[in-house]
């Protein structure tokens, strides 16, 4: 196997791992407002925790570049929100604000995978010695992201198969971006902090503007806050051990 094929195969495996995140939702069939609020809280904690990790990595490459990328990420969400609201989008049986939120979630997580794909490719660029370790780390990192997507999709009526499918879909940019990033490491490396900042900015803003306000609208504050904080801490620690 050539190195390029190996990078692609490894990155594809990490994308498939994302689908595992849907499994805990096999038995969730919640339509109650509280379930939506609590799953929003789980997704918020996971995404904030993941963003903390990304920001730490991005500022290591360059703080200004990371913050500049994050600003574009915020703008991207604002723009996509307006676009979706105007288009009257439908997804499955869902429509209206629920369908918009589902679609926005899929878009945010998919777009954030582009920068992560670049990061994977660049890290492989250091040589194939660590390839297996990096692959496992990214694959495990992707599982909670599938969890976050399914947490938003499943209580709004998506089937389990759809949750798995969209989770895997959201990570497909990783193999697609990893290969060119691997082949042109030196050219791509300067763009890395911008991309990482973009991913973090988009995820944090998605949490602040969509997921948290909806959660606080639908359930009492204390359990929502508790779930967000505990998931966030778990996600940060989880990343430390990878």
């Amino acid at each position: 196997m050539s190195d390029t094929t190996r990078v692609f195969t490894y990155a594809l495996l990490t994308a498939l791992a994302t689908g595992l995140g849907a499994i805990p939702f096999a038995f969730v069939r919640g339509i109650s407002p509280a379930v939506v609020a609590w799953t929003n809280a789980v997704a918020s904690g996971l995404m904030l925790g993941a963003s903390f990790g990304l920001v730490a990595e991005g500022t290591g490459h360059g703080a200004w570049e990371t913050v500049a990328g994050a600003t574009v990420g915020v703008g991207f969400i604002l723009f996509t929100q307006r676009l979706l609201a105007r288009s009257g989008v439908r997804l499955g049986q869902g429509r209206g604000p629920g369908a918009q939120r589902m679609l926005l979630m899929i878009i945010v997580m998919t777009v954030h995978s582009f920068s992560e794909g670049v990061a994977v490719g660049v890290s492989f660029g250091g040589g194939m010695a660590l390839a297996a370790a990096i692959t496992i780390a990214i694959a495990v990192h992707n599982i909670p992201e599938g969890l976050a997507i399914s947490a938003v999709l499943r209580p709004r009526g998506a089937s389990l198969a759809a949750c798995v499918g969209w989770s895997v879909f959201s990570s497909l940019p990783q193999p697609i971006m990893a290969v060119p990033a691997f082949l042109f490491v030196e050219a791509v490396r300067p763009a890395l902090p911008y991309g990482i900042g973009f991913a973090a900015g988009a995820m944090v803003f998605m949490v602040l503007v969509e997921l948290l306000p909806e959660a606080f609208d639908r359930a009492r504050r204390a359990p929502v806050a508790l779930i967000v904080c505990l998931t966030l801490v778990a996600m940060v620690v989880f990343q430390q051990y990878l």
Binding site: L208, V209, L212, R221, V224, A225, V228
Partner: peptide
């Protein structure tokens, strides 16, 4: 600190001003 933000500060902000402006100011 995380809990204070999530339990005390953010929940009611969203009712005092729009979601977008609150999220923008916070980020």
């Amino acid at each position: 600190l995380l809990y204070l933000v999530m339990a005390e500060l953010l929940p009611h902000c969203y009712r005092q001003a729009g979601h977008t402006s609150i999220a923008l100011v916070a980020i």
